[in-house]
Design a protein around this nucleic acid. Structure first.
Lengths: 159, 159
DNA sequence: CCGTAATCGTTAGTGCCACCAACGATTCGT
DNA sequence: ACGAATCGTTGGTGGCACTAACGATTACGG
């Protein structure tokens, strides 16, 4: 009897921080599922997109631009390099560096990921009208901008 | 020279899923910091609040109501019980169960946490006007509701 | 030109969060 | 009475973001 009565009875359910956490969780699940259906991870997309936008770069620069910790770059690049989506070559002008560059296959893969990603955004925002989607995005962007300023943006750690 | 030029130049920054993830991350940091300043964790609040709202319950029921996995309840209850915020007693009518109940100190602690939490929400939403806060909350609630229905709400796993 | 400092790639380990698997003990349903 | 289900508990997994440390290499100031 009490099995069915244990609904969702609590008062923190309408707290903005809770709503953000839960919706973000759903969003991340949607995106991760979408990516994994083509055998990729979220950070794969970020890396490939950054490479396409900025061209070849060292692992460190690439990591900074795409918001991935240096310590996690090795494995990430390995995964992409194993699938020939990316090329790792020593930099002749600085032997500390590896230069990572996008392959043709990597570019094609990126386009597939972008398509997937767009579908996920649509699933995510399904219950909202176009105007509402716009409004939500704008509000979130303002929040994010505010807090990024307050706590030193992740892309520019400390100068 | 390029050190300063590595701004935040990427195109996924305005994706709803990304904005959600980032803002949720900030929110979680704010809340966790706020709680830890009074020596608590987020799930402590959820447990204490659920206890106050529903009264004493078994660990399993408590976990379901507050959205905490059964496997994680032992440690969580231990932490609260060690600080006398909660009492663990065997249920005489069902010897499988422990009955968890809120102590007076637990109630006082809960009030402190609620105050903290309210401040955090305010910090989180600082850049938004009251109407905008309302709007954001409502949009997020609709999103969450939609996806909770789609994927079986976390509170009612499978009947 | 040389030593100190900084950067790069890499490995290993931490902390948090949510989850699954398994188990002994107990109780429920029939 | 017996099999199925529930409860508390332990231990382990996986994703994510981060710190610490280290060898190799390069840059810089005196």
């Amino acid at each position: 009897m009490e099995t069915a009565a244990e609904k969702t009875p609590a008062r923190w359910e309408s707290l903005p921080s809770w709503l953000l956490a839960q919706t973000a969780h759903h969003a991340q699940r949607l995106v991760a599922d979408g990516f994994s259906s083509v055998g990729a991870r979220g950070y794969h997309y970020r890396l490939l997109a950054t490479l396409e936008e900025f061209g070849p770069a060292s692992q460190a620069a690439l990591g900074r631009r795409s918001g991935i910790h240096l310590s996690d770059m090795v494995a990430a690049i390995n995964e992409l390099a194993d699938r020939k989506l990316v090329e790792r070559a020593p930099d002749p002008s600085d032997r500390r560096r590896n230069v990572i560059s996008l392959t043709a296959a990597g570019g094609r893969h990126l386009r597939r990921l972008e398509k997937q990603l767009a579908e996920c955004q649509d699933d995510l925002l399904a219950p909202l009208s176009p105007e509402e989607r716009q409004r939500l995005t704008e509000l979130l962007a303002r929040l994010l901008d505010h807090h990024n300023r307050r706590t030193g943006t992740p892309e520019e750690p400390r100068r």
